[in-house]
Design a protein around this nucleic acid. Structure first.
Lengths: 131, 131
DNA sequence: GGTAAGTCCTGTAGCCGCTACAGGAGCAAG
DNA sequence: CTTGCTCCTGTAGCGGCTACAGGACTTACC
C-alpha cells in the first residue's frame, strides 16, 4: 500500500493529476487509511502507468477510458487497433497542417533579409499572401 | 459602418469570437448605434482579418497582440521576424514529436496482424515498449 | 400600425487536461 | 511538543473559444 505521493513517484503522474483522474472516474477511488489518506495497491500504479503512456502517445482521456476497458476485458485487440489507427490518422493530419505552417513561416521570414520596404511577415498577415 | 454580423461575414471571424476579442482587449471597443449595437468601420474588419490570418498560422493571442502593435507602429520588421522564427521553431518541434508518435503508433498497429497472442497496442501501453 | 422573424445585447458556464492555490488535518522525527 | 512534511477538500485559473439563456431592438411584410 502506497500513499498518493508514493504512487505519483512510481508512475510519473502528478499528485494533482491523480486526484483529477479519480474525480473524472478514470481511476477507481482507492480505500482510505484511518487518517483519511488514499491507499494505493500495485494494480493502481499499473493503471496509472498505462494512462501515462497512453497520454504520452497523445490519446484522449476518452480513448484511454475505452482502451482501459479493452485491456481489462482482455483480448479485444480489434477495438484497440481501431482507436490507435484513428489516432494515428489524426496525428498525420496534424503533421500535414504543421508542415504547411512551417513552409509559410519560413518563406515569410526568408523574405525579411531580401526586401527593403515593408515587412514580409506583417504583409503576409495583412494581405493573406504566401498561403 | 457594419454590424457585428456583417463584419463577421466579411472577416470569417465568428460573432462570439469577435466579442471575446473585444473583452480581452485584442480589438478596440467600437462605437454603438442608438440602439446599443456595435458599429464597425473598415479598419476594424482589416484588424480582424489580420487576427484571423495570424490565428490560422498558429500564432498565440499574445503574439498577435505584439504583432498588431508592430504593424500599427509601422516598420518594426525585426520584432515580427523574431516572433515568426520562434513560432516556426515551436512548429518544427511539434512536427518532430508528432512524427515520433506516428512511428510508434504505426509500428504497434502493424504488429496487430502478425502476432497471435495479446494485443501489441495494449502491450505497448502496459509495458512501455516500442518507444 | 401590428406582428413575426431576424439580429443583436449581456452575462455566465462549458469544453480539454490539467495546474495552482487556500486553508486545514494528520503524521514522523528530533 | 514542536517543526516540517505530506496529505486532505474545494475552488479557480490557463487558452481560445463556443454555447447557451433571457432579453432588447430592427426589419419585412401584411
Amino acid at each position: 500500500m502506497t500513499t498518493i505521493g508514493g504512487v505519483s513517484a512510481l508512475t510519473g503522474v502528478n499528485i494533482e493529476t491523480i486526484r483529477y483522474y479519480e474525480r473524472i472516474g478514470l481511476v477507481p477511488k482507492p480505500p482510505r487509511t484511518e487518517g483519511g489518506r488514499r491507499a494505493y495497491a500495485d494494480a493502481d500504479a499499473k493503471r496509472l502507468r498505462f494512462i501515462r503512456r497512453a497520454r504520452d502517445l497523445g490519446f484522449s482521456i476518452d480513448d484511454i477510458r475505452t482502451l482501459l476497458r479493452l485491456a481489462d476485458s482482455g483480448g479485444a485487440c480489434k477495438g484497440a487497433q481501431e482507436i490507435a489507427v484513428r489516432h494515428r490518422d489524426d496525428v498525420r493530419d496534424k503533421i500535414k497542417t504543421l508542415k504547411r505552417l512551417d513552409r509559410t513561416l519560413t518563406d515569410a521570414a526568408a523574405q525579411c533579409g531580401r526586401t527593403t520596404r515593408g515587412c514580409p511577415i506583417i504583409d503576409t498577415l495583412v494581405e493573406g499572401g504566401l498561403r
